[in-house]
Every structure is written in structure tokens, then in C-alpha cells.
């Protein structure tokens, strides 16, 4: 497994951000900026889910709980305390990590479909708590009233153009960080557990510790996506922690490909474009999306990026693309 060069990734990342910074000067479009912010939040979330599904073989149906927890923790900290934005962000990550440690410790004892169901049940339990704790969370109305103190080091994240660039930067940093996680020896342990758990254990890997570690780590990246969303929608809403959120991330990674690092990003872009185009052209969104999913799922039988890399003759590594 070739270790990707950090320097090359950083140069690539700066290039992407430079392009993102140039686009509004050439084609000023608020819709495009909205699109990038939404993709950034969702792609961070979907890629973090793929750390579990694609790299470790842990099929979680409840990963949306950490994305939603990110939006709620961050929005609550900003509204109810006087912490600065970066402090609230860090504390959100800590809250998510603590929650994920408890949830993960319970869930990773189970395998396969049972792991999937228990994670979904955990998410729905958290959703129910949020809905019924009206005093703190606003119940099914969500946390309204906006997010104060959005100026960080002279940048106003309440300004759409600034938030657009900031989302791009956060996405690039998050992707580079995750890419280096999966390319590290820790990442090799993940793939070993996915391919043959017993063998990994024989070779001295403490399987539960590695599983718990990746569960917590991926939860924190999902929460980063949640924070971006919270800034974008100026609050937190129960829909952001309900089951379809987990479903969206699963479809993004399956459509894009679970065997490639960038599969979830490509899948997210595809789903977001589909969503925007289809809802604009027909009221029968489900009918159109369902047919498209069927064509992809039965036609390619794997994610788009996986399909392309296989066709181009690269061996599907299930690892770093």
C-alpha cells in the first residue's frame, strides 16, 4: 500500500480551494455556492461513514446520529453559552467523541445486520430524546433563533461567500486527514479486520479497540459535517438526525463506490445534483430517483468510481484510490 504524499495532497487541496475561490468571480451564482456548502457537509459525513463501511466492514445504519449530534451540540453551544465559535466547534467534537465511545462500546459487540440494526435503533433513540426534550431542543420545531457570534478572525461565516470558502477548506482538510488515516498502519488494521477478523486477532490486533477507535473517529468527522450544516441552516432540526439522513449517506457511498476513497464524494455530488435537477423538473421525485437508482444498482452492480477504476484496469484495492 503506497503511502500518499502529504505534500502532494496539500498542493492538490490548495489547487481545489483556489479554483473554488475563482469560480464566483467568473460565474456569480448563489445557487452554486449553496450547492458546494451542502456537498461539503454531506461529503464529509459520507466519507466518514465509509471509514466504517468500506474500510472496516462495519455497516452502520445509524451514522446520521453523529451528524445530527454535531448540528445540535454546536447550535446549542452557540446559543446557550458565550463560547467563541472555535471553542464551540472543539467542544462539539469532544461531546461527539464521548457519545460515540459509549454508543460504540455497546454496538461493536454485534456483527453484520445486527450491528446495522442496533446503530439505527441508537440513532432513533437519540432522535426521540431530542423530539421529546422540548425545553432544550425545541422539540419537533427544531432549534430556531439562528447562530450568533459567527465572525472568526475577521471572517464572517454568516456571509454566504465566506461560508462557501470555509466549507471548501474544511472539506479539503477533512478529506486529507481521513485519507491519511486509512493509509496509516491503523488503516491497514482496519482493512485486515474487514477481510478476516480472526486472522487480525491472531496477528495481535486488539480488534475491539481498533473498531471502537474507528467508530469514534468517524463519528467526529461526521460531526464536522454537522457543524457545517448547522452554520448553513442557522440552527438544528430533527430532520437532520432522523433516519433518512443515514439513508442519504448510505446511498451516496453505494452509488459512488465503497472501494474508493473518493467514491463517497462523487456519490454525494451525484445525489445532490439528482436531487436538485429532479425536484425542479418533476413532482414525482421518488419515481425518477428510484428508477435511476435501479439502473445504477442493477447495471453497474457497484459504485460509479469503483466501476470506472475497474474498467480502467486498476485493481480494486478497497483502499487508497
Amino acid at each position: 500500500m503506497l503511502r500518499p504524499s502529504l505534500a502532494r495532497d496539500i498542493v492538490l487541496g490548495i489547487l481545489v480551494i483556489a479554483i473554488l475561490a475563482l469560480i464566483p468571480a467568473l460565474v456569480p451564482s448563489k445557487a452554486f455556492q449553496d450547492f458546494v456548502i451542502r456537498v461539503a457537509a454531506m461529503a464529509l459525513f459520507a466519507t466518514s461513514l465509509n471509514l466504517l463501511v468500506g474500510y472496516t466492514g462495519l455497516t452502520s445504519f445509524g451514522h446520521g446520529m453523529f451528524y445530527g449530534l454535531g448540528t445540535y451540540s454546536f447550535a446549542l453551544l452557540m446559543q446557550k453559552t458565550s463560547l467563541s465559535l472555535p471553542m464551540a466547534f472543539l467542544l462539539t467534537l469532544l461531546i461527539t467523541a464521548a457519545t460515540a465511545t459509549v454508543v460504540g462500546a455497546i454496538c461493536i459487540r454485534l456483527r453484520l445486520i445486527y450491528f446495522a440494526f442496533v446503530t439505527l435503533a441508537m440513532q432513533m433513540l437519540l432522535h426521540s430524546i431530542i423530539i421529546s426534550w422540548v425545553g432544550l431542543t425545541g422539540g419537533d420545531q427544531g432549534l430556531q433563533g439562528g447562530i450568533p457570534r459567527r465572525v472568526v478572525a475577521g471572517f464572517d461565516l454568516g456571509n454566504q461567500h465566506t461560508l462557501y470558502l470555509a466549507s471548501g477548506v474544511v472539506l479539503v482538510i477533512g478529506l486529507i486527514a481521513m485519507r491519511h488515516v486509512v493509509a496509516s498502519t491503523f488503516g491497514t488494521s482496519l482493512r485486515m479486520i474487514r477481510d478476516n477478523e480472526a486472522r487480525a486477532a491472531f496477528l495481535g490486533i486488539v480488534v475491539w479497540r481498533v473498531k471502537l477507535a474507528v467508530f469514534v473517529l468517524s463519528a467526529m468527522f461526521a460531526a464536522v459535517g454537522g457543524v457545517v450544516t448547522s452554520l448553513f441552516v442557522s440552527g438544528a432540526y430533527p430532520e437532520l438526525i432522523n433516519w433518512p439522513i443515514s439513508g442519504d449517506a448510505i446511498f451516496a457511498i453505494v452509488l459512488g463506490g465503497i472501494g474508493s476513497f473518493l467514491g463517497p464524494l462523487v456519490g454525494t455530488i451525484m445525489l445532490t445534483v439528482l436531487n436538485d435537477v429532479v425536484t425542479r423538473t418533476t413532482e414525482y421525485y421518488g419515481l425518477a430517483l428510484g428508477i435511476i437508482i435501479l439502473v445504477f444498482a442493477l447495471g453497474l452492480r457497484r459504485g460509479v468510481v469503483d466501476f470506472v477504476t475497474e474498467r480502467l484496469g486498476f485493481r480494486p484495492s478497497g483502499g487508497v484510490s
Binding site: 446511498f251 453505494v254 421525485y285 421518488g286 430517483l289 428510484g290 437508482i293 435501479l294 444498482a297
Partner: peptide
């Protein structure tokens, strides 16, 4: 994925 498509 396939079941979800049919549901939609």
C-alpha cells in the same frame, strides 16, 4: 438500495 428504489 434496490428495496429503497422500489419503495420510492
Amino acid at each position: 438500495l434496490i428495496c429503497y428504489a422500489v419503495v420510492l
